[in-house]
Simulated scan of single mutants.
Amino acid sequence: MGSLIGLLLKKGVPKKISTTVIQGVALCTIYIGIAGLTKDSNIILIIISIVIGGFIGELIDIDNLLQKLGDKIGDKFKSKNAKISEGFVTASLLFCVGSMAIVGSLESGLEGNNKILFAKSMLDCITSIIFTSSLGIGVMLSSVSVLIYQGIITIAAFALKAILIQSVITNMTAVGSLLIIGLGFNLLDITKIKIANLLPAVFIPVFYQLFLNLMK
């Protein structure tokens, strides 16, 4: 719904306004990432998760796979506008790696509580209006990525209730929040971090807890 509204607004929004708005959203993205970091998180585990996750992500080259998928989508729409790919990749990452996506999906799988996911959907709606007005239909197509990502976490949470204790959730959220901060920097063109290649880092705390359980 947000993307449809954004498409309607797209023609009436001057480029300088959309650029400024995107920069504002980038600053909000960085704030959301910082807000997701807590003193209860395990700093050493977060560093290890980023290193191992980055190694795995580069081997798979998730960033390149997403870019190729975005380009194929652009070809399907017979558009030469690179923003379809950019919109798809950027929105997919923004909507997937945030703390609300992780914690909300975990609570849905563990407790059947969907309140966080419902709140997230409202925030995503507002964000997608802004992004679609600047980046186009690629943002709308990211809804498929959100469905798959949050669906997998929800199903996995239901199957791994014994492992997903509070400390694991806290550390997963902290890693996801760091990726959100990096995405904000990318939106401001300060950095060109391959956030997608760091996505596996979010799940390393789960394997760490599984290892601890096996050692007991």
Results as ranks from 00 to 15, higher is better:
Thr170Asp: 13
Ile148Gln: 05
Ala162Cys: 02
Ile130Gly: 03
Leu160Thr: 07
Gly151Gln: 08
Ser134Asp: 12
Ala162Gly: 07
Ser133Cys: 12
Thr154Cys: 08
Ser134Thr: 10
Gln166Thr: 14
Ser177Ile: 14
Ile130Tyr: 06
Ile137Glu: 08
Ala174Ser: 14
Ile163Ala: 09
Ile152Trp: 15
Cys125Gln: 00
Met172Thr: 04
Leu179Val: 11
Leu141Thr: 14
Thr127Arg: 03
Leu141Glu: 12
Thr127Asp: 09
Ile126Lys: 00
Ala157Ile: 10
Asp124Leu: 07
Gly151Val: 11
Val146Asn: 12
Ile180Asn: 05
Gln166Asn: 11
Asn171Tyr: 00
Thr154Met: 05
Leu164Trp: 00
Ile163Gln: 03
Val175Lys: 01
Gly136Trp: 00
Ile165Trp: 03
Leu178Pro: 01
Val175Tyr: 07
Thr132Tyr: 10
Gly138Phe: 15
Gln150Pro: 11
Leu135Gln: 07
Ile152Phe: 15
Ile180Tyr: 01
Ser134Pro: 06
Phe131Pro: 00
Gln166Met: 12
Tyr149Phe: 15
Ile148His: 02
Gly136Asn: 13
Gly138Gln: 14
Ile169Thr: 09
Gly151Pro: 03
Asp124Glu: 12
Ile130Arg: 01
Gln166Cys: 04
Ser177His: 14
Val146Arg: 13
Ser142Met: 02
Ile137Tyr: 08
Ser143Asn: 14
Val168Ile: 09
Val168Ser: 00
Leu160Asn: 13
Leu147Ser: 08
Asn171Phe: 15
Val146Pro: 03
Cys125Met: 13
Ile163Glu: 02
Gly136Leu: 03
Ile126Cys: 08
Ile169Cys: 05
Lys161Gln: 10
Gly176Tyr: 11
Gly176Ser: 08
Ala159Asp: 00
Ser142Gln: 01
Thr132Cys: 02
Ile155Met: 10
Gly138Tyr: 10
Val168His: 03
Gly176Glu: 12
Ile137Val: 15
Val139Thr: 08
Ser134Cys: 09
Ile148Lys: 03
Leu141Met: 14
Lys161Arg: 11
Leu141Asn: 09
Val168Asn: 01
Ile169Leu: 02
Ile155Trp: 15
Asn171Gln: 11
Leu179Cys: 03
Leu179Ser: 05
Val168Thr: 10
Ala159Gly: 05
Met140Tyr: 15
Gly151Thr: 08
Leu160Ser: 12
